[in-house]
Amino acid sequence: MIRRTHLTTLAAATALAAAGCDREEIRVYSVAKETAPAPAPGASSAPTPAANTPRPQLAYTLPAGWQDAGPTAMSLANFRIKTDAGEASVNITPLASMAGQEAIVVNMWREQVGQKPLADGELAGALTPVEIGGAPGQLFEISGQRDGQTVRIITAFAHRDGASWFYKLQGPDAVLTAQKPVFVEFLKTVRIKEAGAPAAEVAKVAAPAAAEPEPEFKWKVPEGWQTLPAGQMQVAKFGVPARDGAKAEVFVSVFPSDTGGALANVNRWRRQLGLEPVDDAGLKALVAPLDTAPGAILVDLKNDARAMLGAIVPRGERWWFYKLMGDTAAVTAEREAFIRFVQTAP
């Protein structure tokens, strides 16, 4: 009996050892050196040229309650404002000149917080003249939702020596209401002293790295579409023909994953149109299958005068995201051309 008991104990120990092995530990090993892949543009971890390029010096009168948080790779100055109502931040960033592109600047920011882009003619009303360092500048405000949080941003900007200087105040609504007059007064005190490098050069290196080179795609671009410079994380951008003043644009992005799935992407698109997010059931009602690849879907979104057609197409190891967005008339007119374009693999 004792021998048999021992055998059983041995079996139990074997089973426990087999089932209880722990793989979660730090491992150290040696491998043959890999041939390093060519670093992606903008992905190098070497110090950015900004670190070595002489930057302009800023002079200003720091308002009471503001703390200097020092410069970063992008911003020449950062300040923190701590109040009982919450914390806000201010930064000053030079970018390549965007003179004449004020509408793009404002609309890009509005889109980030789920607001509709301004219609033609609305821009002038959105911009307020403001004095920045003794020179004329402009100021605008946006507020909305981003990542589920209320965001309010007051931005002033001025164009100078081939660069655009942006001054941003961001924080909770209560803090910004109190700090806005302080911010406006602060802008008047800012002085920029060049330090060897022209502001335009500084703007180039301080700005985020340029988009990665676009792969060569053999697009079958519908007639009348105009190729535009692609934005961040985009591989292509097109302008569609205007219809009685109605405009729309097509954006194409490629990612190695579905970037969170159809629901997350459709809700992101809905926010860009100022629509409320939907749940899984709502998503089913919105999407239609696309006869281009297994799993491809087409989404039709509309919010009054603004509309969007979105498509998610898995091809091989990557997911292709297409978006036709703009005025409803232009989106409706280009619907068929857009679907044909999506169905054509580049």
């Binding site: 992905a43 948080a69 970063t72 790779a73 992008m74 931040s89 920011w109 985020p208 994380m233």
Partner: peptide, 18 residues
């Protein structure tokens, strides 16, 4: 990619994450 000024301060202080 970090949008010009729209995004708050970067959590990363080194490397491409900035």
């Amino acid at each position: 990619r970090r949008g010009p000024m729209v995004d708050g301060p970067a959590t990363a202080t080194q490397g491409v994450g900035m």
